[in-house]
Structure formats: structure tokens, C-alpha cells
Design a protein around this nucleic acid. Structure first.
Lengths: 155, 155
DNA sequence: GCTAAAAGAATTGATATCAATATAATTGTG
DNA sequence: CACAATTATATTGATATCAATTCTTTTAGC
């Protein structure tokens, strides 16, 4: 049939050394493990820390904007909230004007947990930043990547 | 009790705008979605593509080195292999000399699938690279991050 | 007001991820 | 050779992730 059922090893090397998706996955996994380990005494994963932090707002936000700032699917957010709600760190309340919406708020216990974890984040994040030559440019590039293809960026 | 049960909103803004872990997660999720969508016609996710590519070697590797190059936990690799093996894209064979080891090899069907997906990777990856000012520096930073804390790097 | 379209969120089903633990095989030591 | 330590992999249990679908509620057109 086809005579191209073959991928040269040089292509494998090329993809392994250049693929930004793979590089991003690897870095994300490594950073996640690092923060997960350091946050463990506080019972939080890196994702839960980011989520609690995203909910620390003057006004309880609905799910849409929170999913957007975390660049995650709304269904992922629904799932991620479950363990936090079960542990009493987060509350979901109905919007008084629009009963489709769920307003997400930290409980006092959620605020305490988040407050306790912040110093850990500061320390670990400082250590990581110091290991990089130019963190600001890296952040800017990562931001560019999270906007996705030109036609799929934020309005 | 404690009077510090509070996280100022300015801290939230700071973390949201600077956290490299969050930035990496967001970028990784966005890139994963992008590749997942483009690879869908070939029945592969971005992770499956990377894994198949990692197995495209002259000699079938055992699991350890593969998990390492992908910077993923070995148990994650075990799990990731299941659907690929079930679909007949990957084979696990016992090492003749050391029966603890599993040698991972692409099947002809796995090679065909990978070969079909490579042009998609080239196109999409090119599009992404062209949206960045300096892909090589970004890759280098991501590489630095995946090595984790100084005391946890490769020997 | 009625009804169709749209919007927000939940559920389902599949895979991904890792810590903790277990199993199996090999190696090193005496 | 016996046996403890080590190495390679698998299993378990919990959470994370997203596409497809469903459910509920609101909005728009008439």
C-alpha cells in the first residue's frame, strides 16, 4: 500500500528536541510536582492553590470567568470544585438574579488554608525564578501560547 | 485566633500575573487542546503522539528511559500504554536477559499512525513557532524548568 | 405571553496524573 | 547458595482533563 510507513529516527530526535507542546507538558509536570510536594502539608495541590487564589475576589465570581483565567474547560472546573466543596473550603451559591449561575466563594476555612499556603508559594516561586535568566520574557511567551491560535484568542 | 486569615486581593493579582506554575499549566493546556484537536482525525492525543514518537527508536526501550524523556511518572506511563496497546499500536515484550523489564515497541500499525500524524505536527508546530519571537530561548527555559530543583536534576 | 434559540452549568465516559503500595526479578554480600 | 537490598514494573485510589451530551434557565422574536 503506502511506502511511507516509516518515521526516520532523525525526525524523532527533531520532535523530541523542539516540540513546544512536549516541552510545555514536561515543564508543567515538573512544576506541578514541585509545588504539589511543597504544598502537601497544607493539603493542597498546585491546581487547588491556583483555584482557591482565583476565587479570592471582592465579589464571588461565576464559573465561566474562573475557568477562563485558569485556561481550563468548564467541566474540569466543575470537577475540581467537588473535593474543595466537600472539604468545606469553597461554597457554591446561586446567583440571585440569574439562577443558571453558580457564584463561587471561599469559606473562612478556605481563606485560612489559602493564607497559610501563600508563604510557601512565595518561597518556592522565588527559588524557581532565581534559577531562570529572564522570567519575565518566559511568562510573556507562556501567555502568548495560552491564547491559542490567532482566531481563537480572547475577543 | 489568628488575625491573618486574609489574603489581600493584590496578592491574588500578583500570583495570577506571575506564577510560573500557573502560566505553565495554562500554556500546556492550551497547546494540548490545540494538538488534540488537530490530531483527532488520526485518533491520537498530543500525549499519545509524543509517546509513540518516543518509542520510535532503533531498539525497543524499557519503560524507565521513556518515562524520563517525557518527564512523567512511571505509573503514568503504564497507564498511558494501555489504550495504545489495546488498539494495537504498541507492543510490550519481555527483555530476554532481564525479565523485570518490558521493552516497548511500535507495531507496524503504530508506525503507520505515527507517520500519518507527523505532517500535522509539522504544520501546527510551525504555526505556533511563527507566533513566538524567540522559540529557542523559550525551549531552553522550559528545559531548565523540567529539570526541577538543583538537587533533583539528572545525575 | 409563547416558543425557539442561546447561555450557564452538570453529567458521562474516556484518558491522564501522581503518591503509596505491592509484586516480581536481579544483584550484592557473606 | 541464601537472603537482604535494589531495580523494574504494576496496582490502587484520588484527582485532573476534555469532548459530547443533557439539564435548566434566560433571552429574543413574533
Amino acid at each position: 500500500m503506502s511506502k511511507v510507513d516509516h518515521v526516520p529516527f532523525s525526525t524523532t530526535i527533531h520532535v523530541r528536541d523542539t516540540c513546544l507542546c512536549l516541552h510545555a507538558q514536561r515543564a508543567a509536570r515538573a512544576l506541578a510536582r514541585r509545588f504539589d510536594e511543597e504544598l502537601k502539608p497544607y493539603g493542597l495541590t498546585n491546581g487547588q492553590f491556583s483555584l482557591l487564589m482565583a476565587l479570592n475576589r471582592p465579589e464571588p465570581p461565576p464559573m465561566g470567568p474562573v475557568a477562563e483565567v485558569l485556561a481550563m474547560d468548564q467541566t474540569t472546573l466543575t470537577a475540581a470544585l467537588k473535593p474543595l466543596e466537600r472539604r468545606g473550603l469553597v461554597e457554591r451559591k446561586s446567583h440571585p438574579k440569574d439562577r443558571r449561575m453558580r457564584l463561587l466563594a471561599l469559606t473562612p476555612e478556605g481563606i485560612r488554608t489559602l493564607a497559610a499556603a501563600v508563604p510557601v508559594w512565595r518561597r518556592v516561586h522565588g527559588e524557581i525564578e532565581r534559577s531562570l535568566s529572564d522570567p519575565e520574557t518566559l511568562r510573556s511567551d507562556l501567555r502568548a501560547l495560552s491564547f491559542g491560535p490567532p482566531d481563537a484568542g480572547p475577543v
